[in-house]
Computed example of a mutant assay.
Amino acid sequence: MLLLDYKKQFNTALKKEYPKGEINSFFNILIAHYLNISRLELALDPKKELSPEEKNIFDKILLRLQQHEPIQYILGETEFFGLKFQVDKNVLIPRPETEELVSWILSDLSENKTPALKIIDIGTGSGCIAISLAKNLPEAKLTALDIFKDALKVATRNAEANNVKLNFLNQNILNIKDPLGPFDIIVSNPPYVRELEKKQMHRNVLENEPDVALYVRDKDPLVFYEAITKLAQVSLNKGGSLYFEINQYLAEETEQMMKKAGFKTCLKKDIFGNFRMIRGIKQ
């Protein structure tokens, strides 16, 4: 059948589950991944045929999308900061907001003309932050820490695929008693979604992405931020920087906690106008 005819069926099958723009995005991702053609190429070749074998693949994916399985998990990969990353249900799917955090770090380093650095990414997951930094800072020494061995396996494969070298640590940040490093930069995107905020989450996140990488208890929402900030007090060089992705609803509380720990802070908004990042400089 014609690929454009299948696109109509695809849209009809998903229209009750997703916005039209997201459905079109799914379709464009699929044809690029499996057929190696772009949306523009399809428009220029409206008589492009979909083989029975290709239709069978797309039909199976369509069923999974109807169950709200993230397309990144279906394909087993996603893009972050211009790089390809393998992802599965052991790691979070990297978000555009996290790309902004990486951009902020690189921008600060560029402005300060800082030489080779020692950097640690705490709660690395897929390794997207550490690997993106390593790719853009070839002289830096990057360490990626995570409590979960399965997550570190994914991060290790991603580091190899993107041709960067990282030092991997399998540790629980809440149980570390001795200093690490010393480091020039500590960066983390730890769990920060409170249980009370679950109702705002989409099904594809709630039913598929790892709870332990997303949620914290309502009564102790800054538990990871406090532990990492405490570690930074003894593991950062003087003048070193601590970067966090943060819960927009807890920006003020996070900043006050870091100030009390002796850090000079700067909050930063994401492209949606939400306070999503914070930097603390060790005095």
Rank of each mutant, 00 (worst) to 15 (best):
residue 152 L to W: 01
residue 83 L to S: 05
residue 154 V to T: 12
residue 117 L to M: 08
residue 112 N to C: 10
residue 151 A to E: 09
residue 217 R to I: 01
residue 180 L to Y: 01
residue 105 I to Y: 02
residue 2 L to R: 14
residue 111 E to Q: 12
residue 85 F to T: 03
residue 43 A to L: 15
residue 91 V to M: 07
residue 16 K to N: 13
residue 210 P to A: 14
residue 261 A to P: 00
residue 61 I to W: 05
residue 162 N to E: 06
residue 24 N to F: 11
residue 125 G to R: 05
residue 196 L to M: 14
residue 46 P to G: 11
residue 213 A to Q: 10
residue 225 Y to W: 03
residue 81 F to Y: 11
residue 140 A to C: 12
residue 113 K to H: 10
residue 171 Q to K: 15
residue 237 N to M: 07
residue 146 D to E: 13
residue 127 G to I: 09
residue 148 F to S: 15
residue 105 I to G: 00
residue 63 L to E: 09
residue 132 S to R: 01
residue 67 Q to F: 05
residue 65 L to A: 08
residue 109 L to K: 11
residue 221 P to C: 05
residue 39 R to G: 11
residue 276 R to P: 02
residue 145 L to T: 06
residue 206 L to P: 00
residue 85 F to E: 01
residue 138 P to F: 07
residue 268 K to M: 15
residue 50 L to C: 10
residue 90 N to L: 07
residue 277 M to I: 00
residue 62 L to W: 06
residue 208 N to V: 04
residue 217 R to K: 14
residue 198 K to S: 11
residue 115 P to I: 02
residue 221 P to N: 03
residue 8 K to P: 00
residue 50 L to Q: 04
residue 213 A to L: 12
residue 160 E to Y: 00
residue 75 L to D: 08
residue 171 Q to E: 15
residue 42 L to I: 09
residue 236 L to K: 02
residue 272 F to P: 00
residue 234 V to D: 04
residue 186 I to Q: 03
residue 282 K to Q: 08
residue 33 H to R: 06
residue 32 A to L: 15
residue 9 Q to S: 06
residue 208 N to K: 06
residue 22 E to P: 02
residue 216 V to P: 05
residue 214 L to M: 14
residue 141 K to H: 14
residue 64 R to T: 03
residue 218 D to T: 03
residue 121 D to K: 09
residue 216 V to G: 04
residue 61 I to F: 05
residue 140 A to L: 13
residue 252 E to R: 02
residue 221 P to L: 04
residue 263 F to N: 02
residue 5 D to H: 03
